[in-house]
């Protein structure tokens, strides 16, 4: 599979973008030219110069440094959230599908109920109830999207359960746990990874959307969506304050989408 990934230009490009953003996030203190939170009203709306490569914003903060640190928030929130969603949905989806019967029926009804809420709505209402903060955003996002992933996992497992090797494993006396962990999950994992990696892109967009609305993060944090929101008052006079953060979101989400789509073509070529 690794060889096929290297062969696909799209996958390489996507992976390249993801790696750049990832490295930016990790080495942000080394790359940034200034403290992203440092306010100096005397320096506001500066043009680009050596110390401020992309100028400053309305509070005199270095736009470039804020963008660099923004990668930490974007990936730092979306990747762990996706991980929680992945674990939760694999766990629930697999058990529901594997045991079937009444468990599965109840699970399906619960899924139907959760799926009656558009994900964004669940997040909005949960943040409304829980109050703001990064942890609450993560909880709210997990709560809103798990069902869509769990449903996919469930349908994969149902297909897999019918295959001969699973029957063979059951007949040869493997415990349920062994069948699930050693046989079913490893076999559906490639397809799921595809699904989760495109999911990350959606999550990045979702999270930046919330901070744009002013929900979730405390003010002053250099998150891209929040930067965009702060810049919107100056849209006509200083459009750069809006254009740069948006480009960074587009690029990051685009990287995950490119990579995920290329992976899908590799894992299940029929769908193309």
């Amino acid at each position: 599979m690794a060889a096929k990934i290297i062969k696909s230009k799209q996958a390489v490009l996507g992976l390249f973008i993801i790696l750049i953003v990832l490295l930016t996030a990790v080495f942000a203190p080394l790359i940034a030219t200034n403290d992203p939170q440092e306010i100096d009203p005397r320096l506001k709306f500066k043009g680009s110069e050596a110390l401020y490569p992309l100028g400053t914003d309305q509070l005199g903060r270095c736009v470039f440094s804020r963008l660099i640190y923004g990668a930490r928030y974007s990936l730092g929130i979306s990747l762990p959230t996706m991980l929680v969603v992945a674990v939760l949905s694999i766990f629930l989806g697999t058990f529901s599908a594997f045991y079937g019967g009444i468990v599965d029926r109840v699970f399906s009804i619960i899924c139907d109920i959760f799926m009656s809420f558009p994900p964004l709505l669940v997040v909005l209402s949960l943040i409304g109830a829980l109050g703001q903060g990064i942890a609450n955003i993560v909880i709210a996002v997990v709560f809103s999207v798990w069902v869509w992933y769990a449903k996919v996992v469930r349908s994969f497992v149902i297909l897999e359960k019918k295959k001969g090797y699973v029957m063979a494993a059951v007949l040869s006396g493997c415990s349920d746990m062994q069948v699930i962990v050693k046989h079913i999950v490893p076999n559906i994992l490639p397809s799921l990874i595809v699904y989760f990696s495109t999911g990350v892109a959606g999550m990045i967009l979702m999270i930046s959307g919330f901070s744009f609305l002013g929900l979730g993060l405390e003010s002053g944090v250099p998150e891209w969506g929040a930067m965009l929101s702060n810049g919107k008052a100056y849209i006509y006079s200083y459009p750069n304050l809006i254009i740069y953060p948006g480009l960074f979101i587009l690029l990051t989400a685009g990287g995950f989408n490119l990579f995920g789509e290329a992976l899908r073509d590799i894992v299940s070529p029929k769908e193309v």
Partner: peptide
């Protein structure tokens, strides 16, 4: 692919 990666509030601006 650009369309699914673009933040829609940014697109609006």
């Amino acid at each position: 692919i650009v369309g699914i990666s673009i933040p829609n509030f940014w697109l609006g601006f």
